[in-house]
Every structure is written in C-alpha cells, then in structure tokens.
C-alpha cells in the first residue's frame, strides 16, 4: 500500500540565482568592473542621485561608467542617463518586481564590447522584493528620501538588513519635514545591520555626494586589491 517516506533535501531556494550571481561577480571583478546595485522605493530619487554620483566620481578619476536601468515599463530613466552622455541599457521587466540574474546577464550582454570601471544597476523601485535577489553586484546600497519618512526602516527591515550603505536622499527637504527623525533612522537601521554605512545627501544641492563618491571609489579599490 501507499507508504509515506521522508526525503531530506536542505536546499536553498535561491541557490540557482546565487550561484549565477557569484560567477557574474567574479567575471566582472576580473575585468576591473565594479558593480553597484542601487535600490529604493519609487520616487526615492535613484536616477537623480545616480547622475549626481557619476558627476562626483568624475572628479576623482577618469573612469568609464555605464548604467543598467531597470524599469517595469518605460525608458524614461534610461533616456535621462543617455542624455547625460553615459552608456545605458534599459532593462524592462514587464511588471516583474525585481531583477534576477537571467535579466542581468542579458542586460550586460547588450553593452557589447563596452567595458566599464563602474557599472550601476538602478533596480526596480520597490523596498521589498529586490532585497531577496542577488544581482551579481559587488555592493548594494539603498536610498531613502526625506519625504518618505524615517519610519520606513521599521516597515521594511529586510531591505535595510541586506545593504552595505543607506543613502538618505533629498535632505534639502529636512526643514519641511519636522517629523523626520534622523537619529531614530540611524539607530533602527543598524539594529539588523550594525556595520551599515549611512550618508545624508541631496543630489540637488550636492550635499554629501562627494562622500558617497569617495565611498564607491574606495569600495572599487578594495575589490581590485
């Protein structure tokens, strides 16, 4: 008769994506390309931040830079990057809420023979799903804008737990948002991630951008050493 049996599995559900990401990361490292995954909610200011970051990085070195613009539907962001004279590839996920390795490899291949010192992935605007998926980048950062409120750290703890740095954006809005408790944000963000680096910036005024650029520059140097 029908006998039940137990099969021990112990297999990580994300292992397929993780393995592919690790290989991709190694290959880019060998080429000297530092990959940075930029995450944050819709409207956190990812594209504007990225444009300002690349300007600041240009002051530090004559680096070759490129951008993978992940978007659910449009090419709005990719066009902004192209208008700034930066090679970019548009990665339309057609409604998928995160980027995973299959998409990432395709997007990278679309650059053809172009090689970069820095390659940025502007991830899908979402504070939930991208946290789970390794995109093969060397470092991951997340943006939280002042208008969104400091308490997002309480509502989306996994995202704050998986990143190397938290960038507070639109700090020029601080005088308009009295409820934004910077100290509480910093304290909570480091609860699950005690080593988290935190920067307070405004792409519009340029505040803090050189510090972020220096951090990115340093992380690439660490990768190469």
């Amino acid at each position: 008769m029908d006998e039940s049996r137990v099969i021990e599995v112990k297999r990580d559900i994300l292992a397929g994506n993780d393995r592919s990401a690790e290989k991709f990361r190694m290959l880019r490292k060998e080429e000297g390309t530092f990959l940075l995954d930029i995450m944050g909610s819709p409207g956190a200011g990812k594209t504007t931040f990225l444009l300002a970051l690349m300007e600041s990085l240009k002051k530090l070195s004559d680096a070759k830079m490129g951008v993978i613009e992940a978007d659910l539907e449009s090419d709005v962001d990719a066009l902004k990057i192209k208008a700034a004279g930066i090679p970019s590839v548009e990665l339309n996920t057609k409604g998928v809420c995160h980027v995973e390795m299959g998409m990432m490899k395709q997007a990278y291949a679309a650059f053809g023979d172009l090689k970069f010192d820095y390659l940025f992935l502007e991830n899908i605007g979402n504070l939930v799903c991208p946290a789970d998926f390794d995109t093969g980048c060397h470092r991951r950062i997340m943006l939280l804008s002042v208008p969104e409120g400091w308490d997002k750290v309480c509502k989306y703890p996994p995202m704050f737990a998986v990143v190397d740095a938290l960038i507070v954006t639109k700090c020029d809005y601080l005088p308009l948002n009295e409820d934004f408790d910077m100290e509480a944000l910093k304290e909570h963000a480091r609860i699950l991630n005690p080593k988290l680096d935190i920067f307070v910036t405004s792409a519009r005024t340029g505040e803090g951008m050189d510090d972020v650029a220096a951090w990115v520059f340093e992380k690439r140097k660490q990768m190469l050493s």
């Binding site: 029908d2 006998e3 039940s4 049996r5 099969i7 599995v9 297999r11 737990a161």
Partner: peptide, 17 residues
C-alpha cells in the same frame, strides 16, 4: 550578530513510494 532570520530553504519533502 544576526545568526538566524534570513533562512529560505527546502528542508525536506514527504512522498509516497
């Protein structure tokens, strides 16, 4: 240090022979 809370794996399956 965080030691648990990020797990995501299939531990076992039950099947009929």
């Amino acid at each position: 240090q965080l030691v648990s809370g990020m797990e995501f794996y299939i531990s076992k399956i039950e099947a009929s022979k």
